[in-house]
Design a protein around this nucleic acid. Sequence first.
DNA 1: CTCCCGATAT
DNA 2: ATATCAGGAG
Length: 227
Amino acid sequence: MGTRLESPAEQAAEVIDRLFKEYPDTTISLDFSNRLELLIAVILSAQCTDERVNKETEHLFAKYDGPEDYANADQEELAADLDSITYYNNKAGYIREACAIIAAEHDGEVPDTMSELTDLPGVGRKTANVVLQHGHQLIEGVVVDTHVQRLTRRLGITEERSPERIERELMELVPREHWQEFTHLCISHGRATCTARNPDCGECALEDVCPSSKLDSEMDLASGEAW
DNA sequence: CTCCCGATAT
DNA sequence: ATATCAGGAG
């Protein structure tokens, strides 16, 4: 078990402090050169690696340009352009419909409010928060993706399960000036060390404050085997 | 809750 | 073979 009985807020502060030393330059890893490309890249990134999204958007962004271009695209053709991305049929539809709304109702510009963004098909709170933060420099919430969900639970920062509840709790526990950084640190550490399947606790900078560390159970096992 | 759904690591 | 990847809709 973790060595200290820290409050969730103290635990979060310790995590930020230590991970920032390990990943001082962490930031968004999706490639984009304007707000529409950002929106599309984030929609495509659902349950797919950023690496694969970047590989596909390189071709996609060269072929299509502007909301009307996507809105008028043929569904089958756009889906085929995305055929190595997860859920490519759904995502092709989301992109076409979202771009049609952006063209018709938002003067061709990606909206800058949470409600207007989440009204777009394929855009939930997570995607909207990323677009607000990286497209409009507006920090209205904490981006809670699969990595933030997994790490905050393993580290004992939250007991909640739903991304919406975890976000509300993190908005209470983490100072607003660290909201954006907190997500990037969780993602970097989640990819490099605290992986979903087989976390590398031996290399983890948070091992001594992590209630879920494997090392404790291995020591229990070793002492148990000593009989 | 289920469905969507290819590439990759284990 | 199976779990996982910057989720969201019905």
